[in-house]
Simulated assay, not measured.
Amino acid sequence: MLKKPLVLLAITLLPLTGCNTLPPPDVTPVQGFQLERYQGRWYEIARLDHRFERGLHAVSADYSRNTDGSIRVVNRGFDTAAASWREAVGKAWFNGPADVASLKVSFFGPFYGGYHVAELDPDYRWAVVVGPDKNYLWLLSRDKQPAPDAKTALLAVAAKLGIPAEKLIWVSQDRGDN
């Protein structure tokens, strides 16, 4: 992996990671959350625009448990301008009880940002994640191309959160080696 793009990614994440790690006031993180079921690969289906992900396609996130009890987060995406993969590895901790999907995540030293699962499919097939405020939103799926009913559900949750569909960037998952 190229070190320079990762350092640049970490620096651009600094404003996010310096923020509050609690959920926005009108967002209730999923209760009854089961990390064991959430672990593994998730594909980014859509997101709000942010410079730290701008130009990335085939974006995925992998979650696994570290031996110290934290959660390992590996975000990966293909940078079309550089024609190369970018990867950032972080660490997350629960903000409170482990059955509440409210976490703080860091990709850069002691600075943490909020990661809150606002809605989760009962079968853990799709999820809606917000950051410390609703300017950060990701629609995730276990499938690169979610079923139409899953996309409808994701869009309904985004709308309920006040995010209009036209603000979302739909992420191409065309890269075959992700």
Rank of each mutant, 00 (worst) to 15 (best):
R76F: 00
P164G: 01
L137H: 05
N178H: 11
Y38P: 11
M1N: 04
Y112C: 03
Y115Q: 01
T21E: 02
R41S: 03
A10K: 10
S106Q: 01
I169L: 15
T80D: 10
E36T: 12
V129E: 04
A153D: 07
G114W: 00
R175K: 09
A98R: 11
G96V: 08
W170C: 07
D49P: 09
D123M: 10
A92W: 00
R41I: 10
V128L: 11
G109C: 08
G162Y: 07
Q31E: 14
G113I: 04
V73L: 12
N75D: 03
V27W: 01
D177L: 08
L154R: 04
S60K: 11
A153Q: 09
A156F: 05
L13N: 04
N20S: 13
E87I: 11
D26T: 06
R41Q: 11
A158N: 11
D123I: 03
A127Y: 03
R125T: 11
P132I: 09
D174V: 09
V73C: 02
A10T: 06
T80R: 15
F33A: 05
L2V: 14
T21N: 06
A165E: 14
A46E: 03
A127Q: 02
A150M: 08
K144E: 11
L139P: 07
L139I: 09
I163V: 15
Y43D: 04
